[in-house]
Amino acid sequence: MDTTIRELSYAQAIQEAMAIAMERDERVFLMGEDIGVYGGAFQVTGDLVHRFGEDRVMDTPISELGGAGVAVGAAVTGMRPIFEFQFSDFAALAMEQIVNQAAKMRYMLGGAVSVPLVMRFPAGSGTGAAAQHSQSIEAWLGHVPGLKVVQPATPHDAKGLLLAALEDPDPVMIFEHKLLYKMKGPVPEGYYTTPIGKAEIRREGKDVTIVATAIMVHKALEAAETLASEGIDAEVIDLRTIRPMDRETVIASVKKTSRLICVYEGVKTLGVGAEVSAMIAESDAFDFLDAPIIRLGGAETPIPYNPELEKAAVPQVPDILKSARDLVNGVR
């Protein structure tokens, strides 16, 4: 087993996963807009078309609905398509195929088929692309039985979760935060998978649990370092999968720390943090709580263009610091 570990960017890690998958399994192919010679809007597919050819790295017309449906049809008849949305926002054009077809086909047909479909969604704000290119819509899809929804936060997990998604017989939606594409981190060479449905404790602590997704994991870790210098020992959980959610890890952590903050970029109301909070409220961890739960989510607004407004629209490190201090100091 190859255990060499290098530093790769998040985008390079995804590209490596797709290359390994295509080498291992001839059923795997890529579909998306401008993923061929252009290399994808974020250069995630890069030069793969030169290695694997246009039949396996297929540029589609600008037809998100039709393209998604083609991927569903290919998946259900023996192929393993990886469909790239250019921006996760464009999934709104393809919701019919994702929600009404891919997610429900197995159930509606009484188990006669599986839909081993992988979709990749460049997501999130911070690029100055404004309201139609910056959303975090993972909770929309997390609400649909039949789908699995993951949000890798590190290059390691971006590769491992993509390879796990390809092993999964059901549709897996992968939300990739655009600001993470250039982030570097250790990535093992060769084939490995990161389990879908399993959260990861990124930092152990005893005073407060911070459950975070995607880029918020890094903001939470940054906040935790500052908090440590103040004597507050934060535990940071990278949720990684929002459907199915890892109840055990979160519940055990809250029982230990007695305090919970959820940090996520999607709009706060009816978002991932609402589900995590309700999960704790319904569990025996509720009795362990020493303070109210705090949700830090996206503002109740479309993502604005102005860079200062844009930053203000999603949780930042100072928001996490204040919430943690308030909880530990009994202000809330």
Partner: peptide, 9 residues
């Protein structure tokens, strides 16, 4: 579109 995907397959 699903039929087109099956045909691609």
């Amino acid at each position: 579109p699903i039929a087109v995907g099956a045909a691609l397959s």
